[in-house]
Amino acid sequence: MFGLKEDWSLKLPPRYFTLEDYDGGVARWCPGCGDHGVLMSVRRICRDEQIPPEKVVSVSGIGCSSRFPHYMKTYGFHGLHGRALPVAEGIKARRPDLDVWVTTGDGDNCSIGAGHWLHAVRYNMDMVVMMFDNNIYGLTKKQTSPTTQPGERTNTHPRGALLPAIDPITTMLGMTNVSFVAQTVDWNPVHLHDTLVRAWKHPGFSFVRILQRCPQYTAHVFSGLQDDPDALLVMEHDNGVPVDKALDRTLKNRTTHDPSDKMEAFALAARRDAIPIGLFFCDPDRPRYNEMTVEGMGMSVEDKLAGLEDQLDRFAI
């Protein structure tokens, strides 16, 4: 509530932000596309956490989901296919005050941007990375993506995709300096929201794979998951994604998983009987590059000039 606390005290901030302050306009994704729900959730988090819009930077690559920044009324960077992460790293490097949200897709992140992805895990810079995984290239019209299941018919593989799909979760878990790996689904707004909040609160590279419906090309891939709530396995733990009571009646398939247990996370990720959602792994104590890149920030002009003179002295004759 606006300014009103639980103890009935009233606190009036100089600026108060409403959802409208983050609303960059009507998104032009297809009706029924999972992206809409994620957009609403991110705007809500910004509002709930009262992050000034000018301090939010939404960074993306190219693809359907990468239109995301255009629909936020914050700062945004809609860059190149596969290259959202290097840009986001550069933004965060010397601007610790900025709140960086990266939007990427399965093609953007796991194919053309895969090299940057792995290194971004290692840099472990403080940002939320939402990978919208619809198992397909949507914007370019139904080509096989790295997460397309083998046998799936696409325009590039009309007789069925040839190769095993990349598993983004095990890839993340296996990468050096991994600090946060979660999974959720776009069609459960409560779990989606709670997962993104948990990611936002984690100091480091918070990677959330969002299973996301593409009504145009891969509706059938996720319909089974939607129709059968037990096809999802909710991971519960005090340090995990908090599971709202509202989900008790719908998502009953539960397991307790301590997100500091990486080996169990691997085992869960490998499960084929149900898709685990929640927090696979979290380690808030991994080194963060953004704490190294700020070295020397804010040095005065006088000190810089003196430092430069010292360096020139080394070459003086």
Partner: peptide, 27 residues
């Protein structure tokens, strides 16, 4: 570089290097 408070980023590749620089400049 530390003498003037600068930071040298050795990126994972040439593309990331310019992407990082562009991000920093944008910010």
């Amino acid at each position: 570089f530390p003498a003037t408070g600068g930071f040298l980023h050795q990126a994972e590749d040439e593309i990331a290097a310019i992407g990082f620089a562009i991000g920093a400049s944008y910010a």
